[in-house]
Structure formats: C-alpha cells, structure tokens
Amino acid sequence: MDMPFTAHVKWRSEKFGAVVFDTLNEKVFVTNGIGGSILKMLADDLPESAISKRLREEYADADGDRIESEVSAFLDELRTRGLFASDARSGR
C-alpha cells in the first residue's frame, strides 16, 4: 500500500490495530486500533486536518481538541522514528 512512508517502510492491519515495519532498519512498531485507522486514512491520502475531522465525527463524545493533539502526536512520532518520507501529508 502506498503511503507517505519512506520506501522501505511497510504497514498492514492486524486484529489489535496495525504493525509498521521499517525493513531497512529491521524495526517493528505496533499500534492500536485508532493508530491503525490513522494509518488507513494516510493510505487514503488524507491530510492531518481531515484525519482529525473524521475521528472527531467518529468519536463525537470525545474531546475534539484532545483528538487533534493525539493525531498530531502520532504523526510526529512516525516522523521522529524516521518513517515518513516527507511532511507532505501534514496539512499544516
């Protein structure tokens, strides 16, 4: 699946959420269901703002500002780990 990830980063859905594999560095990361949803939306080419919006709609009872900051933190973590090829999807 094409993603904003670097060339050697692969991901797939799992029952628990998703697994991200940086094959070049042979490092595996796992994330929960919501992390998996964010990865799916990234694969669907959605920018950060649209991801937050969709999750706010899905979790209408949750604090919207918290959702936004969590999405931002998740994407930052992917960047920090060197998994993103660029910031093209940040929507900032």
Binding site: E26, K27, V28, V30, T31, N32, R66, A73, E77, R81
Partner: peptide, 13 residues
C-alpha cells in the same frame, strides 16, 4: 488514544 507502542525486538511474539 493512538499511542504507537514499540516492539522491542523485530518480529516479537
């Protein structure tokens, strides 16, 4: 909410 947890060893478990 969407915390990225790190597996300590590739292919763990």
């Amino acid at each position: 909410m969407s915390e990225l947890q790190t597996a300590t060893v590739p292919g763990d478990s």
